[in-house]
Computed example of a mutant assay.
Amino acid sequence: MQGELRDLNRYPDRDAVALRAALADYLGHGLVAANVWAANGSNEVQQQLLQTFAGPGRTALGFGPSYSMHPLLAQGTGTRWIGALRDPDFGLTPDAAVAQLDEHDPDVVFLCSPNNPTGTALDSTVVGAVLERARGMVVVDEAYTEFRRAGTPTALELLPQHPRLVVSRTMSKAFGFAGGRLGYFAADPAVVDAVQLVRLPYHLSAITQAAARAAVAQRDALLANVEVIKVQRDRIVGTLRARGFRVADSDANFVLFEVGGDQKIVWQRLLDRGVLIRDVGLPGWLRVTAGTPAETDAFLEALT
């Protein structure tokens, strides 16, 4: 990183080739720098995708409840947003997904896996069915994928057979790099080339590129805490279900659970006991983030 700081009087590499190569090495699956693009957080990555493949006169579709920024990014790029729905258990079946594609014929499809705010992951058959039926681009948002349970697939496995597939990632979650603002995607090199037509000049600073490369190089140390969080996540799921709560399956670093009443009242009562969790706007449901064993103890005791 010292070299990058020494050269701050010069513009950064506008193509971020070294960073993209490092990210490709981290992702594996035979990917190279030409398959990867990076920007200021996954929000900018997805905005660039909509600028490239959507816009006025085109549509984007997502299955809610899901990431709240997807419709906002669509609005900001002049893209008409189509809000389809997930199943009552927050999952999605191939037939239900394909039925929505047949009805709306979107230019861009967003799939969130693991889903935000529910934590549920999609089976590869769902992603495969969407890829076979969709006319346009399919973006799989995998912001929380490092927290997925063993056996939960990643859409990266499908990239070689599907040139219209984009897998979006971020370093904000598992890497603890939210302040560094680094999101990226993996796709066919033609998709990367197309997105470069809409990027702003020098959109990634030299400091951001250097810090992100350092974080990727130290991934073993930075991602060690992921396993600790997964243990606490599974502990929360198991304990709540044993107590009779309805809990969404989670492959993320948080757990969504049904409180059996007004979630605002339960949220306030937990806060009164010194525990702050999230009300994500789903009536009757609250979301708790998995943290340290002591934090899990405090949450479970306060909920009792």
Rank of each mutant, 00 (worst) to 15 (best):
Leu8Glu: 05
Thr304Gly: 15
Phe245Pro: 00
Asp107Pro: 02
Trp37Arg: 12
Ser250Gly: 02
Val17His: 02
Ala129Phe: 09
Thr120Glu: 10
Phe53Cys: 07
Glu4Cys: 03
Arg149His: 04
Val139Trp: 10
Ala134Gln: 11
Ser205Asn: 07
Leu159Arg: 06
Pro94Asn: 08
Leu182Phe: 08
Leu122Gln: 05
Pro12Leu: 03
Leu282Asn: 03
Val45Pro: 08
Asn116Phe: 14
Arg169Val: 01
Met137Val: 15
Asp95Gln: 14
Glu142Arg: 06
Gly3Phe: 10
Leu50Ile: 07
Ser42Asn: 12
Glu132Lys: 14
Val126Tyr: 00
Asp123Gly: 15
Asn253Cys: 08
Gly57Phe: 07
Asp123Thr: 13
Phe175Cys: 07
Leu23Val: 13
Val130Lys: 09
Glu295Gln: 15
Met1Phe: 14
Ala298Gly: 01
Pro12Ile: 04
Gly151Gln: 02
Arg278Glu: 09
Val192Phe: 12
Thr304Tyr: 00
Arg148Thr: 12
Glu132Ser: 14
Val198Glu: 13
Gly119Asp: 11
Leu101His: 03
Thr120Gln: 11
Gln263Ile: 04
Asp188Leu: 01
Val127His: 02
Leu303Val: 09
Val237Ser: 07
Asp123Pro: 00
Pro65His: 10
Asp89Glu: 12
Gly151Asn: 03
Leu223Gly: 02
Pro94Lys: 10
Ala186Gly: 09
Ala143Phe: 11
Val255Gly: 04
Glu4His: 13
Glu146Gln: 13
Ser124Phe: 04
Leu27Asn: 03
Pro94Phe: 06
Ala84Ser: 14
Val247Arg: 05
Ser66Leu: 05
Pro94Trp: 02
Arg14Ser: 09
